[in-house]
Structures are given as C-alpha cells and as structure tokens.
Computed example of a mutant assay.
Amino acid sequence: MKAYDTVRAAAADAGLSLSELSRSLGRPSNYVANGAARGSTPQADTLAAMLEPCGYVLAAVPRDQVPAAALVIDAPAPRA
C-alpha cells in the first residue's frame, strides 16, 4: 500500500472524508486530496500528522511483529 492509500484507509476507518482530515490539520480542504493526486509521498512527520486525527500512529516495528490490524506502507520496488 502506498502512503496516501494508507491515509485514505485510515480516514475511512475513522469516518473522515479527506476534506475533513485536511481541515483537521489546519489546511485547505483539498490539501490531502491534492497531495494524493500529485502522486507525491509525504514526509514521515507529515504522514504522522495525517494519521493522528484518524486514530493511527506512524511506527516502525519488526516485520515479524506487525499487528494484523496494521496498515502497512510498502517499500518502493528496487531500481533496475
């Protein structure tokens, strides 16, 4: 899953639209949707801020200890 896919899933789990999430961050209502549409990847602190209003945290855990309910952001494919 990509970073913005995770944000979308977390927002949906929390019953928030992307507009509501954006406004909860003190940003314009299209802030999250525009970032996703650009195909950009948010910095870690920005991603953590987006997840927090949804009741999620950004954390690093050993791969073999990832909880079943976790939303996992996949690493990009190696460059050839």
Score class of each variant (00 low, 15 high):
residue 2 K to E: 13
residue 2 K to Q: 12
residue 3 A to T: 07
residue 3 A to L: 03
residue 3 A to S: 15
residue 3 A to D: 10
residue 4 Y to A: 03
residue 4 Y to I: 02
residue 4 Y to W: 15
residue 5 D to S: 13
residue 6 T to E: 00
residue 6 T to I: 15
residue 7 V to T: 08
residue 7 V to L: 07
residue 7 V to W: 00
residue 8 R to K: 15
residue 9 A to N: 09
residue 9 A to V: 06
residue 9 A to P: 04
residue 9 A to D: 13
residue 10 A to R: 01
residue 10 A to F: 10
residue 10 A to D: 08
residue 11 A to C: 12
residue 11 A to E: 10
residue 12 A to G: 05
residue 13 D to I: 00
residue 14 A to F: 09
residue 14 A to W: 03
residue 15 G to W: 06
residue 16 L to D: 07
residue 16 L to I: 08
residue 16 L to K: 11
residue 17 S to Q: 07
residue 18 L to N: 08
residue 18 L to M: 14
residue 18 L to W: 05
residue 19 S to H: 07
residue 19 S to L: 00
residue 19 S to M: 11
residue 20 E to H: 10
residue 20 E to F: 06
residue 21 L to E: 05
residue 22 S to Y: 03
residue 24 S to R: 15
residue 24 S to E: 14
residue 24 S to W: 03
residue 25 L to Y: 12
residue 25 L to F: 13
residue 25 L to S: 13
residue 26 G to Q: 12
residue 26 G to N: 12
residue 26 G to H: 12
residue 27 R to M: 15
residue 29 S to K: 14
residue 30 N to V: 13
residue 30 N to Y: 13
residue 31 Y to A: 04
residue 31 Y to K: 05
residue 31 Y to C: 05
residue 32 V to C: 03
residue 32 V to G: 01
residue 33 A to C: 02
residue 34 N to M: 11
residue 34 N to L: 11
residue 34 N to V: 11
residue 35 G to E: 04
residue 35 G to Q: 02
residue 35 G to K: 00
residue 35 G to A: 08
residue 35 G to C: 09
residue 36 A to I: 08
residue 36 A to P: 03
residue 37 A to I: 01
residue 37 A to C: 00
residue 38 R to M: 08
residue 38 R to S: 12
residue 38 R to H: 10
residue 38 R to L: 11
residue 39 G to F: 07
residue 40 S to V: 10
residue 40 S to Y: 03
residue 40 S to H: 11
residue 40 S to R: 08
residue 41 T to R: 11
residue 41 T to I: 04
residue 43 Q to S: 10
residue 44 A to N: 09
residue 44 A to C: 00
residue 45 D to E: 14
residue 45 D to Q: 12
residue 46 T to R: 09
residue 46 T to D: 02
residue 47 L to I: 07
residue 47 L to V: 06
residue 47 L to N: 00
residue 48 A to T: 06
residue 49 A to V: 02
residue 49 A to S: 14
residue 50 M to D: 01
residue 50 M to T: 04
residue 51 L to S: 02
residue 52 E to T: 10
residue 53 P to A: 08
residue 53 P to N: 08
residue 54 C to Q: 02
residue 54 C to P: 10
residue 54 C to Y: 01
residue 54 C to M: 07
residue 55 G to M: 10
residue 56 Y to W: 15
residue 56 Y to A: 05
residue 56 Y to V: 02
residue 57 V to C: 06
residue 58 L to N: 07
residue 59 A to I: 10
residue 61 V to Q: 05
residue 61 V to G: 03
residue 62 P to L: 09
residue 64 D to I: 02
residue 64 D to C: 01
residue 64 D to N: 15
residue 64 D to G: 08
residue 65 Q to V: 04
residue 67 P to T: 11
residue 67 P to A: 12
residue 67 P to H: 06
residue 67 P to L: 07
residue 70 A to D: 07
residue 71 L to C: 07
residue 73 I to G: 05
residue 73 I to M: 14
residue 73 I to E: 04
residue 73 I to D: 05
residue 73 I to Q: 04
residue 74 D to S: 14
residue 75 A to R: 13
residue 75 A to K: 12
residue 75 A to N: 04
residue 75 A to F: 01
residue 76 P to S: 05
residue 76 P to N: 03
residue 76 P to H: 04
residue 77 A to D: 10
residue 77 A to T: 13
residue 78 P to F: 01
residue 78 P to W: 02
residue 78 P to R: 11
residue 79 R to K: 13
residue 79 R to C: 00
residue 80 A to K: 11
